[in-house]
């Protein structure tokens, strides 16, 4: 399993030529939520692969269950990356994905989330879904790390299965936290701006 993960992440790194920049922050194995813009199927894989090994071992990408349990190959890949699969169709009050994420994180794991919910097709990022806000309210100690992924949508756009090996870049920015008394709408806008800002650095 470890070997597959190493091989897959090396292949992904070579293919995407990703440069990783830690802007005003450092890699750390403390509990964090990495939240990024979502443009390609490779996003989670490349972001996960570009973390240092020790950090990677305690970081789990959050992914859609309906997509990743189709077929043995996808299931295997999801397992390799220790992905946390969320059921998008069966969201109920007593079984909310937020509670599942918090339970699975425990006091050890960090998560990679894509708050846009689905891959965006246009140039601009979509509005963020509220999950990030709820996570942060229940666990205010988590560091929320904004991540901007550039050019990966050209490597493997939506609906394509053959990649083109262009160079992409991943920028990880300084953490943000939920401010006291900050409302949901303001917080989500601020989080989105934190990701957007990394594009021009």
């Amino acid at each position: 399993m470890k070997l597959t993960a190493a091989v897959l992440s090396l292949a992904a790194k070579l293919l995407s030529g990703a440069t990783v920049r830690w802007f005003e922050c450092q890699p750390d194995s403390c509990q964090r939520i990495y939240f990024a813009n979502h443009t390609s199927h490779l996003d989670a894989l490349i972001l996960w692969a570009s973390l240092p090994r020790l950090v990677r071992e305690v970081t789990r990408p959050v992914a859609a269950k309906d997509y990743w349990i189709k077929g043995p190959l996808r299931r295997y890949i999801a397992q390799t990356f220790n992905a946390l699969l969320i059921d998008r169709d069966e969201i109920k009050v007593h079984n909310s994905p937020i509670d599942l994420m918090l339970k699975e994180m425990g006091s050890k794991y960090s998560l990679i989330v894509f708050p846009e919910g689905t891959r965006n097709t246009g140039e601009e990022m979509q509005e963020f879904k509220s999950g990030l806000y709820h996570l942060s309210r229940k666990r205010p100690d988590l560091e929320l790390m904004p991540v901007y992924i550039d050019n990966l949508n050209r490597v493997l756009p939506r609906g394509e299965f053959l990649p083109v090996p262009l160079l992409s870049s991943i920028t990880i920015g300084p953490p943000i936290w939920l401010e006291p008394k900050e409302n949901k709408h303001d917080f989500l806008n601020r989080a989105r701006a934190a990701v957007r800002r990394l594009k021009d650095i």
Partner: peptide, 10 residues
């Protein structure tokens, strides 16, 4: 490049 160039680039 545009989306339509993807296969050509491949």
């Amino acid at each position: 490049t545009r989306r339509g160039d993807h296969r050509t680039l491949f």
